[in-house]
Amino acid sequence: MKDNNVKGRLEILTPQGLENSDKPQKMRLNKRTSCIRCGKCCSESSPSLMKADISLFISGVLSHDNTYTIRYGERVRSNVDDNIYESFIELIKIKNKEGTSICIFYKDNEGCSIYENRPSQCRAYKCWSPENLINGLEKNALKRSDIFGSIDLLMDVIGKHEEKCSYAKLSDAFDRLAEGIEDAVEDIIDMLQYDTYIRPFLKEKFNVPSTAMDLILGKPLIDTINAFGFKVEINGEEYTLSPIEPIKEMEGKK
């Protein structure tokens, strides 16, 4: 009787075949235990910052030019499995190169340009054993209050912004929209307008740099709202909310 499970029982052999014996030698797999600076981790995502990394802001290695905030409840797409998840905590991350998942500090053929001053998560990450990367994240993650806690004005702005247009409120509004509750659209538009107008207001009234907005307030809702399956078109002061067409449906119309 032919054994259909033979393939599953075969051992991996060395490509050299016979070596000082009439039997093939088993392949020896050496597990890597140190960083070889291949750049893979830098290309898949930028690091989330820890409280210990506040020193990098103090020294000027990091600033509002190269960091941004993921707010609590924000929907983000995973680079690992391409699924969308809600962030269970507030995170501050280093920016990626525009349109990519590559850390802004990574340079081709050179590696990390701030390697000697790299963030805690980069130092702790082991690509050959990444299972424990998330350990301690909830307790030790750097937050906006760690950076701006002594600036009452900015903390008031952040608090008001969260009160008016948190992702919890936005998610609830979209749930109500799915149930056909008409005033949900108005609530969503109100949040979009507040989030849009507060940014130039901070710049004009208090000279807050435009490059600091994504750190202080997180990414604009008009950009992140597509994670809810909708897009926004702005014409003057008029906002139009419409569902994103599935790719297959769009292709069928071509």
Rank of each mutant, 00 (worst) to 15 (best):
F201R: 12
I36N: 13
K164A: 11
E110W: 14
E131Q: 07
P47S: 10
I244H: 05
P130S: 05
V6L: 15
E245M: 13
S78K: 13
E238T: 09
N235H: 14
K160S: 04
L153H: 02
K7S: 14
T196A: 03
N83Y: 14
T69C: 13
F57D: 04
P243Q: 02
K248E: 14
E238Q: 08
G218I: 06
V80S: 14
I89A: 03
K51Q: 05
P15W: 02
I158P: 08
Y125W: 07
V157E: 01
D195Q: 01
N140D: 08
P130I: 03
G99K: 02
E44L: 15
S63M: 00
E249Y: 08
S34D: 14
G99W: 09
K219P: 02
L202P: 01
T196C: 00
H64A: 05
C42L: 12
Y85T: 08
E86C: 01
P246G: 04
L153G: 05
I198H: 11
S171H: 11
A52K: 12
M155G: 05
E44W: 14
K95P: 00
A168Y: 09
S87W: 10
R9D: 09
N226C: 14
S21T: 11
P130W: 03
I234S: 09
K126G: 03
L62F: 03
N4G: 04
N66M: 01
D22G: 06
G236Q: 12
I70E: 15
P119K: 11
F148V: 01
F148R: 02
N96L: 10
M1I: 15
L62K: 00
K169M: 10
I244P: 03
N226F: 03
N135H: 05
I244S: 06
R123W: 07
A141E: 00
K126E: 13
Q25E: 10
Y115E: 04
K231T: 10
L137P: 03
N135L: 06
K93R: 14
I225R: 03
K253S: 04
C103A: 07
G218Y: 07
R176V: 02
V157L: 01
K40W: 14
S242I: 04
Y85W: 06
V61G: 06
E163G: 01
T240I: 05
C122M: 06
I188E: 06
L49K: 02
M27P: 04
I247L: 13
I158T: 02
K143T: 08
N83F: 15
L241R: 01
I36Y: 12
T67L: 04
I234Q: 09
C42E: 12
K31G: 07
G60I: 10
C122F: 06
G236Y: 08
R37H: 15
E86L: 04
D81W: 02
K143D: 00
E90S: 02
N30G: 05
K107Y: 07
D82C: 04
S101C: 10
N66C: 04
T100F: 03
P243Y: 05
E204T: 13
L217M: 10
L154T: 07
A52H: 03
E86W: 01
N30V: 09
C41P: 01
F174M: 08
V80G: 13
D156R: 11
R75W: 10
